[in-house]
Structure formats: C-alpha cells, structure tokens
Design a protein around this nucleic acid. Structure first.
Lengths: 186, 186
DNA sequence: CGAGGCCTTGACCGCGGTCAATGCCCGTGG
DNA sequence: CCACGGGCATTGACCGCGGTCAAGGCCTCG
C-alpha cells in the first residue's frame, strides 16, 4: 500500500508492527463538498489523504472558516480533540472528490502499548503537524494578508482547485479583500 | 523534586525510568533580561519553568517579537528546531529572575529507546503544546486584538509582570495600539 | 540630577471590513 | 434548449482598527 511506504519514509517499523498497523487501515471515498466529520463530534479517527483535498473548518459568528487544508499524504485530524478526548467545534469536509485512509484512533492508541515503534512513528508524524502549526502562527502573527497569500501560492500546488472563499478565511480575511489582493497582483 | 511529581500528574513512569530521567535534569537560574538561548541556535535542550517567566522571541524587520510566554510548569522549547534539527531564528529570554529545569535533548531522546514510558510521557507533554498552538492559531485567525488581550488577561496570572511591549507583539500589534486598547477598557 | 527606557497620547493614514450591485457559471426544470 | 435561480467572484463606496511618527510624562538607575 502506498501509505505504508510513506510511513516507511518517516520511520521504519518492524514487519510485525507493520502488519498490525495495516490491519487498521481502511480507505474511504468522499465526493466534493461531502462532510467527512461533523462539527461538534469527537475526533476518533486519524485520516491521511490519499488523493484529493480536504479541509478542517468551523463556524464563527455564522461564518464558515477554514483552518487547514490537506493534500496527498497529509494527516488530517482535529488534534485539540484527538489529544484531549473533548468534542471539537470543527468539522472535516472534502473539497474535491477525495480518497482518505482512515485509522481508528482507539485501536491505534491500543497498538502503542504493544508496539513501541508504532507510537514513535505517529509521534513523528504528529510532530510534523506541530511544526506546521507553529509556522502558521508566525505567518498569522506578523505578515500581511497579501504576503500570506503569496506564500500560499508559492508553497501549495492545486490551490486553483480551492474555492476562493475558503482561501480567504484561511488567510484570516474576507473573500472581498482577497479579491482585491488578487487584482493587485497582476 | 517538584518536577517529577508534575510529570507523574501527566503520566506515571516506572521507578527505573524515573531514576534515569531524573539524572538528566539540572536546574539553572537566570536573572531578568538574561538570554537563555541565543537567536540562531539549535534547540537541544528541553526547558521547563520552575519559577519565574520566560519568553520565546525573534526579530522581524528589526522589531522584537514575542511568540510565547512560559510560566511555572510550562515547557519552553523551540519545537520547529527541536523536532527538525534545524537552527531557528528564535531565542529564549528570562523576563524576570527565573529558575528552569533543563534536560539535554540528545540524552533524553536516547532514553526513549530504553524506556518506552519516557517517550510516552514526553509525547503527552508535547501534545499539550501542540494543542496550545492550535488554540492560539484560532485566536490569531479570527479575533480582534482587543479580544485577544481580554483573553490573555483572563487566562494568565502574572501578566502585570510582563512589559507591555512584549504583550503587544505577542498579540500581533504595536505597543501604541495596545496602549489605546488598555485605555478603552477602564 | 540627567539620561534612557517604557508607556501614553495626538495627528494622520492605509489595510481590510461591511454593504450592496453586478457579472459569471452552472445545474435544474418547463 | 432555453430560462431561471443560486452560488461564487469582482467591484465600488464608505468606515474603523491598528499602523507610523512624534511629543511628552514618568520611572529607574548611575
């Protein structure tokens, strides 16, 4: 499976661990706009995007706000719920027709006790997410919306597939402002 | 040691692991304004504040920007360097006379191989930091500076000990704007 | 007592916000 | 097949939050 070789590139686990882990992995398909996880639910599944695009979103003052985009091989979890067990006001949605790998979190955490190396693999995977959050913090704290948009253009393929309204809220601005920024650029 | 009982409250480790771990822990004292870790260094030490206040900061366009504050029992690491091995443009400074516990990261990571439960303990500690980063992301993405300041006032004791200029940059605004916000409030 | 750091205040400006009108694309039904 | 309606993006008019620059007050420390 492609996913397992991606895992190998992060941290190699023993064949036995690999076997236990792979038995937990299922694939699911979602069509454009479909909800993968409802707002208000608890995060009990670790998703990894196989193909397509997904986003984490929530509602604030009646607005739909995108917090995160995920592409191929990206994890997509609502960490503030997965790590605490609390429900989260955030949901997960497919932006295009999307295939994800899904791993049940309870079973996964149970495997941690039997296979030290699985815990390590996922520790490393989540550490990457942690670093991503910090980078995003930096950009939100002291860059203009325009700079953030230019960065996004530079670093993210497939942006053209994402509706501008989602990009706008991800950048922390309205789609009206994003539209003006875009018109300035060329 | 107080630190070990704090660790116990997060995750209990075996007596043997506890012994190995405690041999890595040292205490260091820094006076107000003193630099704990230089800008541009690699993060090879896990610090936990025992007493006092520390901050993570960096320079952007000649300005001094505070990214994080740490109080008693808070971890203080530059995760984007600790987890990647890359140097970081961020430094650590004591805001007051501060005592920290210091754990050498290389030795700690080596212990992970011998003691599964130490890896788990620190995984859980870092997960908390991860969740904090995400909460902060939310507030930076879609709250006004005033709301962020009010939250900070509510959730953080000892703010009165932190110079306003640091609070301002932490909120993503200038100290001039913070000053106006403060004057509005009462 | 003088110097420098920190905080406040005033004048002025620009980025990004709201509200509203318009254009465009696309799916659905008569 | 065209007409209509709804969602998405753009554009204009207007406003307010937070930015810069500069002056002034207040501590602290040598």
């Amino acid at each position: 499976m492609e996913l397992l070789s991606f895992f190998d590139s992060v941290y190699k686990i023993t064949p036995r661990a690999r076997e236990s882990l792979s038995s937990l992995i299922t694939e699911k398909e979602y069509s454009k706009i479909e909800i993968i996880q409802q707002i208000g639910s608890r995060c009990r599944t670790v998703y990894i995007v196989k193909r397509g695009i997904a986003r984490i979103f929530y509602h604030k003052d009646g607005l739909d706000i995108t917090e995160h985009f995920a592409f191929s091989n990206d994890l997509i979890v609502r960490a503030e719920s997965l790590f605490t067990g609390e429900p989260t006001p955030k949901g997960i949605q497919a932006i295009e027709n999307t295939t994800v790998y899904a791993i049940d979190a309870v079973s996964l955490f149970a495997l941690y006790d039997q296979h030290h190396d699985i815990e390590r693999l996922f520790r490393l995977l989540f550490e990457r997410e942690h670093v991503n959050s910090i980078k995003r913090l930096e950009s939100l704290q002291f860059q203009s919306a325009k700079d953030r948009y230019l960065d996004l253009l530079k670093n993210t393929d497939y942006i053209q597939k994402i509706p501008l309204k989602h990009i706008a809220s991800y950048l922390g601005i309205t789609q009206v402002s994003l539209s003006r920024i875009r018109s300035e650029i060329r």
